[in-house]
């Protein structure tokens, strides 16, 4: 349900109707920005925003910090595993040596 795809707003096409052009990998489409604008973030400020697009509407502004955080958690998982593996390997090596 609800196919959504990240894209970047590259141009405002109609300020009053809150329309802008979104770019998804070089494919462009006019989308409605109503759901991602408010007083602090007016239409004019949307250019450059990364948004999630669903059926021609920008539905959410993508939180870059949160995205990085999610990836970091996964990376750290890997690091911990690598450390554990290294510890195990050295323990084994020690075991063999003794």
């Amino acid at each position: 349900m609800c196919l959504g795809i990240p894209g970047q707003i590259v141009e405002i096409t109609d300020k009053t109707r809150k329309l802008g052009l979104v770019d998804v990998s070089g494919v462009k489409r006019e989308v409605n920005l109503a759901c991602i604008v408010n007083e602090e973030h007016p239409v004019a400020d949307c250019v450059g925003d990364w948004v999630l697009v669903h059926v021609g509407f920008a539905m959410s502004r993508i939180d870059e910090a949160e995205a990085a955080e999610t990836l970091k958690i996964l990376e750290q998982l890997g690091e911990v595993q690598d450390e554990l593996a290294a510890m195990r390997a050295s323990a084994e090596a020690l075991g063999k040596a003794s």
Binding site: L3, I5, V24, S25, G26, V27, R29, V53
Partner: peptide, 12 residues
């Protein structure tokens, strides 16, 4: 190509 990927992602 990237554009075809993007096109396909948008339209499912």
């Amino acid at each position: 190509r990237d554009e075809v990927k993007g096109f396909c992602e948008i339209l499912g």
